[in-house]
Each structure stands twice: as structure tokens, then as C-alpha cells.
Amino acid sequence: MSELTQWLLSHGISMAVLEIIVFIPILATLVNLSRYFIGFKSFGIYAPVILALAYRYTGLRYGLIITLLVVIAAFIGYSVLKRIRMHYLARVAINYVIVALVVVFGIATFDSLNPLGFDNFESVNPLALISIVALSDFFIKMYVKKSITATARVLLETVLIAVIGWSLISAQSMIEYLVNNLWMLGVFLILNLIIGRYTGLRIKEYFRFSFIIKNENK
């Protein structure tokens, strides 16, 4: 263990905090990379980072099933409410209520029926669960403005980034190395700087515009 890490650990920083400090740059860099290099649209940078962190504490299987519950609840809730005339924030609030109910009863149903071997919901970290529920806010806000397909696509890409992020921060040896060599975080700084100045086409754009070349070759 490096001296710096030891010094931090003996001055009010716990190991858990130190790990999160290391996770955040990794995840943020990942979101950055997927946006500007690949062209994935996520719900901002916060949502995928929080989701990946939540998955770390719930476990991927439990995390994904809760995500699914939240999304279904948010979607159904909003679609039904759309027909009723009311104020915007009231709509979002009611939606939260619906999501809360569906998640609670959904978990209970899964636990009692136990179709896929989910029987350990008690050990799911409540804070992690709330973090996943918060996803519904991003989902609804976009769904209000844009179509369901556009929203579903962004959601899918957000979850995909979160899963990749989860697998990165689950690589224990890498995390340990980073915790012991905190200077490595500077590398992320440089990496993000490079991505930030990248001006080429995003991978998705190559597909989007590929026919311009095809058209010329005709």
C-alpha cells in the first residue's frame, strides 16, 4: 500500500470511500468515451454512473431486474396518466408513487414465486435501490418530450454503459491497483482531455453517413 493511501486511510477516509473515489473517474471517463467516440446518448453523465455504482452494491442480476421493474412501472404509469389532464409536476409525482408501489410489490412477487432464483432481495442495499428508482425521473422527463422509441433507445444505451461500467469497477485487482496508486487518476484526466478534444466522426456517425461514400461510388 502506498504511503499516500495509508495516510488517507488514517485521516478519516474509509476504504469504501476511497474505492468510490476511484470508481467515479473510471465511470465518468467511460460515459465520456461512449458519448464522443461511439455516439451513445445516455441520460446525462450522472445516471449511468449512479446506475453502475448501484449495480455494484446490488449485484448485476438484482440490479437489472430492479431496473426492469422501474422502467416498466414508469412507462405504464406515464402512459395511463397521459390521458388525464393535470399539472406536469403532479404527473411526475404520481409516477413516483406508482414506481414505488410496483417496485415494492414486484420484489415481493419475485421473492415469493421465485421463478429465476431471486430469493435474496433482503440483502439489496436500500440506497442502491433508491438510486435505480431515480432512473425513472430521467426516463419520464425524456418520454414527456420525445417518443417512446427514442427514450427506450437512450435508456438501453444508459443501461449498457452502466453494465460495462459495473464490469470495470468489479475488476478487483484493477481497483486495488488504483487505490494503491492514486496518481493514476491523473491518467484519466489526460484521457478525458484527449476525448474532449476529439473532433472526428463518432462510430455511429460512420454508419449514419456511410451512404454518402456509397452514393459516390455508384
Partner: peptide, 9 residues
């Protein structure tokens, strides 16, 4: 393509 097409970046 990279030379001809304008991407978001």
C-alpha cells in the same frame, strides 16, 4: 468520410 462529413464533435 471523416474529411467530408461534419459530425457533431
Amino acid at each position: 468520410l471523416n474529411k467530408e462529413v461534419l459530425g457533431i464533435n
